[in-house]
Each structure stands twice: as structure tokens, then as C-alpha cells.
Design a binder for these strands. Sequence first.
DNA 1: TAATAACCTCGCAA
DNA 2: ATTGCGAGGTTAT
Length: 292
Amino acid sequence: MAGGARRVSGVELAVTGPLDLEPTLAWGQSFRWQPDAQGRYVGVVGGDVVRLTRTPAGVWVESAPTAPGELAEAMAAYLRLDDDLPAIQSRLSADPHVAAGIRAYPGLRMLRQDPWETLASFILSQVSNIPRIHRTVEALARAYGEPVRLGGVWRRTFPRPERVAEAGERRLRRLGCGFRAPYLAAAAAAVADGRLRLGALRAQPYPAVLEALTGLTGVGDKVADCVMLFSLDRPEAFPADRWVLRVLREWYALPERLSYPAIRAWAQGRFGQDAGYANHYLFWHIRESSRG
DNA sequence: TAATAACCTCGCAA
DNA sequence: ATTGCGAGGTTAT
């Protein structure tokens, strides 16, 4: 029985360096975290409902985990507590625009999520917005995920690719996926039948991973970079959406028209392995500064 | 090779 | 109320 009445357990993870749960969990890397009335964040990681509370020394993690002994390790990996934020931020602060982003959102960290969930979520993200992506992803979970719970809180897991493939384009459209429905159905089928082995991509070089992901119809450079940055341990990935393009144009005086490979080369030449963090600080910084 | 419409749906102005 | 517009892209032409 999914999410049965396993005992709720808690563990505190020590965090060195800054961590702000709201921007990290709820600002567009993951679409399943919700704040509760006490300001804690409740989400579903793997097959378990997880509740996170910031503490002075780190994060209090509550769950009724499938594998209790692995909870701390799994959540430390998910939150990328292995990233040395002070070192990353110190290197990036050489750039004044990124430095301003870091000052605005010092506790914004990258996550290390499940690759299938990330791929599916970012296929759904195109020409959309964060509230709508949240709704669509949650509708997908409600329709095809497994019920799981933490005490009295019930949620659903992110659906397995097999279930999404089986649902098919028409039903995905009815859930609100719009023109992304055939893309999602095709990606689900590719993952389900083993043509695309996401887990194996972590060990491969960047160009091979890029090629594997963009081989899917409906997955271009930007979505592929999001999947690489948010789930496949590619901190050098630099997703260039319309906001980041605006940053490059307005703050870095780059030419109006630049090919995606040229942007990627510029970013990785300038920020190296920190390009992904630079990207995210710049993204939120320009969004914040352009909110009238 | 480079530019441009078309694409679902929804929330929000006017 | 109703309409028009744009939203963390990608594909086809």
C-alpha cells in the first residue's frame, strides 16, 4: 500500500553556507513544493512526502520514508548540500551583475532532482509561467501518481513514465498540457521503453547528454539545459530563456542575435563550472528588477 | 543558414 | 462581459 502508515521520522541536516527554502524550492526549479500554514515546505521526493523546516543550524527533515536509513542522505543530495556555496558565490561575485543577484537572493541554491520528473516538468514549462506549470504538474500527479502521505498530509508521487506514456496525448491535453502534450507523451514513451536512459546520462560528457535530450521532439537547447542543471549534475549548464537573453543584451551588451551555441560558449567561458548558478542569480535578478 | 508564424491554455488587463 | 495579449520554447516552413 502506497504511502502507508509508516512512522513519521525526522532528521536534522547540517547546512554550511546560506539556504533559503522559498527561492530554492518554490521558484521554478521544482514545481511540487508547497508552503504550509507554518511556513514549512511540503513536497514529494521520490516516493515520499517530505516536510522541510529551516533551523538555525540547517534543515529539519520530516518524512515517513520508504527507506528510513537513507532519508538524510537522499535529502542532502536533493538539496545539493555538497555544493560549497561560499566558494561559488565568492568566485561569482567578481561579476557585478551576478554579485547583485547574490546579494538579492543569497540563499538561492540549485537542486539535484529526479531526471524524469525534471524532463517532464520542463517540457511543460515552455511558453508558460510558474503558477501554471505548478498546476499542470500537480494535475498530472493527481491523475497518474500514487497516493502517499505524511501523517495527515496526502500527496501523490510524480507519475512514472510508463503511466504517462500510457495516458497518451489526448488525455494529457485534457489535463491542460496544451500543445506540449505530444512532446510529453513521446518523452515518456522513450524513457519507459529504455530508448532514453536518463540515469546513464550522468556519466556522459556534456555534448552527448545534450544530443540525447534534444533528440526528443519538443526538447530544445533551453529545456535540455534545465534538465542538465537541475537534475543531471551539470553545473556548467546555462539555460538561456527570454529573460536570460535580455540579461545578455541589456547588461552585458551582447549582440541582439546570438546562436544558442554562441551563448553557451560565452557563459561557460565566463563562468565555467559556476555558469548554472550565475544563470539562476541573473534570471531572478532581472525578473525582480523589471517588476515595475 | 536565418527569420517567422503557429501552437494550447489561462490569467489578467482594459 | 468580452477581447486581446503574453507567458522561463520548439518546430516546421
